[in-house]
Design a protein around this nucleic acid. Structure first.
Length: 470
RNA sequence: GAUCCCGUCGGCUAAUGGUUAGGCCGCGAGGCUUUCAACCUCGAAAUGCGAGUUCGAUUCUCGCCGGGAUCACCA
């Protein structure tokens, strides 16, 4: 049997990080077994489905490289097929019309809840054949009353549910449109899905779906319900925990392989291994190694992984990403040192490309802003003399290579009879605006001679102004 | 409320009916260092609680506690 998995998001918002992990597991499982990965858009909720959301899903999947072999299928385009099954079931008795009004259903549930019971449809139209004027009926699935549904979930193990726990769910609304639990099984059957891998919020839907597979005369697929991803406070991961939209991660300068690597280790593991290439994930992934317990999203570990992948990414790619980010920040990459040099200097100093762009902004603009705290601490009157000496020496220096510049600064420090820190830190603040940067020789080299001298002048002026105000 | 699921360091997780319960992130200390990083070394840190089975339980069973999911004319 060919393995066929599907990712079936509903286009009602952004592509959520939790959905991405589910998609990743589906993708890996299909690839691992030489099968097919299908993308299906579950857009039967006309109210909430949007084209923008469809685009976001496609864009996110594409960015991550989670390529599908079939689809995207759209459920809205399969209405005729659903209608056909509905008619067959109405005919065969697997489904029936229910003329209850919403008010009646609400009242029923209210009563049951008050009695401490599980709210459920009581089957009052299950065996009636008459109609009711003035009410558009819904269609319900006639669920078996006796026996139980048993299935072996790949991550949860044996799950058994008594049929009398299950009520007759609505499979078509009063306007005739089919509902989720029904379209899913028609699609999974028609598309010959062999393994349904989805979030465990669907676990309780599964017995019903299996009953519908039986009604359809189809063999249910294998199921694997993967645990949820939680936020730091233990509740389901959502916006208030930070970014949950995959595209936000791209915008921040995360690399797709880092996100994927992070996500695959949430609920899945292979011994002590932390770093997985896509090929390794495919070769190693197995549902039996998926945890049953929910896991908490940990942004720090994601950043660590991202830094790891940045350190191992090729320079051309990083240059491209950095340039893109600089432009977004209103800076022109050409108005500064060669990006390859910038990246070499910063590759160990940024956990995201966004952070790298932010901390290298001083290299791409004539004007810099002094960080008040750093200026206050390092641009003091005592620094004036060594800084002036440094500026003097540098103005006569033509070898603007990092190593020799480093030597030059050290020589000036010695000449002034002060430690390296007494010259280095003021110079760093003068030239970058802040107190953190690569080695001073490297920094000066990157900033370039004319900008360096101009900034040293500015710093000297700053110190002078400060002295006078005292 | 009902039904179901889950429970190893702060987080992600490994392991076994018998180990000093391992790794990674983070955290702390040290090294390197003009700064910030990177890197290296070291360290603190966990089997939710209580019974039972057993020579022996973190692992198997039960109860408790805690957390979660579902109970829609949403998906």
């Amino acid at each position: 049997m060919t393995v066929r998995t599907r990712f079936a998001p509903s286009p009602t918002g952004v592509l959520h990080i939790g959905g991405v992990r589910t998609a990743l597991f589906c993708y890996l499982y299909a690839r691992r077994h030489g099968g097919e990965f299908i993308l299906r858009i579950e857009d039967t909720d006309r109210e909430r489905s949007t084209q923008a959301s469809v685009d976001a899903i496609l864009e996110g999947m594409n960015w991550l490289g989670l390529d599908h072999d079939e689809g995207p299928y759209f459920q809205m385009q399969r209405f005729d097929r659903y209608r056909q099954v509905l008619d067959e079931w109405l005919e065969s008795g697997h489904a029936y019309y229910c003329y209850c009004t919403r008010e009646e259903l609400d009242a029923m549930r209210e009563q049951q809840r008050a009695a401490g019971l599980k709210p459920r449809y009581d089957g009052r139209w299950r065996d009636k054949s008459e109609r009711r004027e003035g009410v558009d009926p819904v269609i319900r699935f006639r669920n078996p009353i006796e026996g139980q549904v048993v299935f072996n979930d790949a991550v949860r193990g044996m799950v058994a549910v008594d049929n009398d726990e299950l009520d007759d769910l609505i499979i078509a609304r009063s306007d005739g449109t089919p509902t989720y639990n029904f379209t899913v099984i028609v699609d999974d059957a028609d598309m010959a899905i062999s393994h349904v891998i989805r979030g465990d919020d669907h676990l309780s839907n599964t017995p019903r779906q299996i009953n519908m597979f039986t009604a359809l005369g189809a063999e249910p697929p294998s199921y694997a319900h993967v645990p949820m991803i939680l936020g730091a406070d233990g509740s389901r991961l959502s916006k208030r925990h930070g970014a949950v939209n995959v595209i936000d991660y791209r915008e921040k300068g995360f690399l797709p392989e880092a996100l994927l690597n992070y996500l695959v280790r949430l609920g899945w593991s292979h011994g002590d291994q932390e770093i997985f290439s896509m090929d390794e994930m495919i070769a190693l992934f197995d549902l039996k190694d998926v945890n049953a317990a929910a896991s908490t999203f940990n942004p720090e570990k994601l950043e660590w992984l991202n830094q790891h992948y940045i350190q191992h990414a090729n320079t051309d790619r990083l240059e491209h990403l950095l340039a893109e980010r600089l432009r977004e920040n209103g800076l022109e990459p050409a108005n500064g040192p060669a990006l390859a040099d910038v990246i070499a200097a910063y590759i160990d100093r940024a956990e995201t490309i966004g952070a790298m762009a932010a901390s290298t902004a001083y290299l791409f603009s004539d004007e810099i802003t002094l960080d008040p705290a750093a200026a206050k601490k390092h641009l003091r009157p005592v620094a004036a003399e060594p800084l002036a000496a440094l500026k003097e020496t540098l103005s006569e220096t033509n070898d603007w290579g990092a190593d020799s510049l480093g030597d030059t600064v050290a020589a000036v420090a010695e000449r002034c009879g002060v430690g390296m820190g007494k010259v280095g830190m003021p110079a760093r603040v003068a030239v970058t605006g802040g107190g953190a940067s690569p080695g001073l020789g490297e920094t000066l080299s990157l900033v370039g001679k004319s900008r360096s001298l101009a900034r040293l002048d500015r710093a000297l002026e700053y110190i002078e102004a400060r002295r006078q105000s005292q």
